[in-house]
Amino acid sequence: MFVQFTTWDIVRNLLEAGRWTLALSLLAFMLGGAVGLLVLFLRISHNRVAQAFTKGYIEIFQGTPLLMQLFIVFFGLPLLGIDVSPWLAAALGLTLFTSAYLAEIWRGCVEAVPRGQWEASASLALSFPQQMRHVVLPQALRVAIAPTVGFSVQVVKGTAVTSIIGFAELTKTGSMLANATFQPFLVFGLVAAGYFALCYPLSLYAKRLERRFHVAR
């Protein structure tokens, strides 16, 4: 007995799954941003141990595929007796991945602030956190906005990988529908269109921001 799928059925199912892609992207981006800020602070602090630890952290996440990171979270944590659902594993894995990349992007932005700014604020007796808060971060932020929005595109596309550990987002739902309808080209075409609809506005926005902050002070 076959269930007949109309094109509208396919689209409706994909739209529903797309909400999970969107939710996972937002969550990973926000949590990853928060963790990334912490990693950034440790990375540029004057503490050698914190520097070395965060440098290693960033290298590991940048030097291994996202898929392996998800596998390690999904299969590794149960070995330690912690049960993780695909949803939790996906959120955790993407958050860590995002934090490492954002920390590194932002470190570049902080280093783009001229040395004289550090020296002038130090000579006025500001402490390191005060220098960051009042002098360096406000200037780094200006430079950081465009690449940060640009990176959000990578996060959205990265969520597709979580389909492999069984999280039913857009790609996973797409594979299931392709198997059930025998119309892989149509289904994956629609899946791709879904990602494009999410990512393209972000890319455009990033470009616009880049232009704007380029001409601004």
Partner: peptide, 26 residues
């Protein structure tokens, strides 16, 4: 106090805010 060759004013703050920063924060 120190004054530098390259001024090193904080570009995101006005002249007044540049001057007020250290007294208020420190």
């Amino acid at each position: 106090g120190m004054v530098f060759q390259q001024f090193n004013l904080f570009p995101h703050l006005t002249a007044g805010q540049n001057v007020m920063l250290a007294p208020t924060v420190v």
